[in-house]
Design a protein around this nucleic acid. Structure first.
Lengths: 253, 253
DNA sequence: TAGTGGTCTAGACCACATG
DNA sequence: ATGTGGTCTAGACCACTAT
């Protein structure tokens, strides 16, 4: 195992030139295995004992590394069963990034309509955000999300073309699964984290028509940049949320 | 120490009727000490070794309890110094709950103007949210937040009258400190967590005048319920945010 | 030098899921 | 019965802060 070189001796890592705790190094190694796809979303990763043997550290050290990854929603621990790679496929995590909630009642299953799907050259700002060169191929798509028949979210997305080859309106329309779940199963892209900037804006004529509100009606503008493993940006999303019967839910702590 | 009754025997807690891990019990005991004010915001709490002796558990168990409380922003660990009760007083945590960020440039120190401060009987909905009886006394206040001269946030607050005796416009105006920092030092109320519901709404005439925008201009409506220790609600806040040069920042994970 | 939190280990036992 | 993660302990040593 060549990875031994990055792990310090049996007891301590203090003589390492750029010191970092052992469990952080283990954490980085596990993250690496996730990045390169050694363990895929939904997979069970090796047990703590196995990993401790592989990395030549104690079980407690592996445990601490896994604990932090689980806290960051990269792994999922299940007592008695094992530790699993987090996935958007399972029902619980399906809508982890959807913060729009009905003012009263339960969140129903949203209905998604693809309005457009094109392959274009990346505009300068999109390219910058996705860390591409201006003019690199990107896939852009627009879709409408409706709750119990009411159109609520008008989304516009940009994705790196190189990662989403073969993404077409047909495939999107066929798939009944949420986008992130589909991105994961069809293209192997696991969304890990996202930054959002939220504003109130007036509805432009087209958005007003689609969301069935008056022009210039206030809408929530949600600009999202989504990251996969290793803080690599892989999606820009610009959503217009209708918030008359719904709200964006957030917790501060 | 009568608390021994809640802690199980020397090695294990498995025979406890309502089982919960030892470290969770310790966590609850520490939280209790925070609630009753045994240790106040900014105070250093006893060292891990002292707490382990007090609760008759190992240092590792106390450590795990403290780790979770620190993760929840109730405690702050500082290597080499000790563990401290989190506070809104120190600069770093001053604006922990302020998510409005300038589109570019650094967040300057906001200027706060108190527009109104009255003692009233709680409206039904406020009473329900604050877990008071309708008609119980509450303090309500309105204030304007400005960044580098630009009015950006128009807030309306309701606080339980019983907890904020002696809160007047004068005291608010004198105090240069942020509200939460002032609530903590003057009234002993430490805000711990908040839930927010965010919407886009049209500016009403008064808000438009104060925020210097056209009537019906889109604003962010942020409805916040803030909690102190033990999930006790102690503030309702309704804020109108001007988001032309600022945005509400959020991270999803 | 002493005291604090931070890391790491080794080992024991418990709780849960599955065969 | 076995294997998984979850809890708890005891002890060693490191890193940081203050005196």
């Amino acid at each position: 195992m060549s990875s031994d070189a990055t792990i310090a001796g049996a007891t301590q890592a203090s003589f390492s030139p750029t010191f970092s705790p052992l469990y952080q190094q283990i954490k980085a190694l596990i993250t690496q295995s996730l990045e390169v796809g050694e363990w895929k979303p939904g997979d069970m990763i090796p047990s703590e004992i196995e990993l401790a043997a592989r990395y030549k550290v104690s079980q407690g050290t592996v445990r601490k590394a896994i604990d932090e990854l689980a806290a960051g929603n990269l792994l999922l621990r299940r007592q008695g069963k094992g530790t699993f790679v987090a996935t958007h496929t399972e029902p619980r995590a399906q809508f982890r990034f959807l913060r729009l909630m009905p003012d009263e009642g339960e969140q129903g299953y949203p209905e998604s309509t693809i309005l457009e799907c094109r392959r274009v050259r990346a505009p300068a700002e999109i390219a910058r955000t996705l860390e591409l060169k201006p003019g690199d191929p990107v896939v852009t798509l627009r879709r409408l999300l409706s709750f119990s028949g009411y159109p609520c979210v008008l989304d516009e997305l940009w994705l790196p073309g190189s990662l989403f080859k073969g993404l077409t309106a047909e495939r999107l329309t066929e798939s009944k699964a949420p986008l992130y779940s589909m991105f994961e199963s069809e293209f192997g892209i696991k969304m890990v984290r996202a930054d959002e900037k939220i504003r109130a804006v007036p509805a432009d004529p087209e958005a007003a028509r689609i969301l069935r509100v008056e022009p210039r009606a206030p809408l929530l503008l949600v600009e999202r940049v989504t990251f996969t493993y290793g803080e690599r940006p892989v999606e820009v999303r610009r959503g217009l949320y209708l918030t008359t019967r719904h709200h964006y839910k957030n917790e501060l702590s």
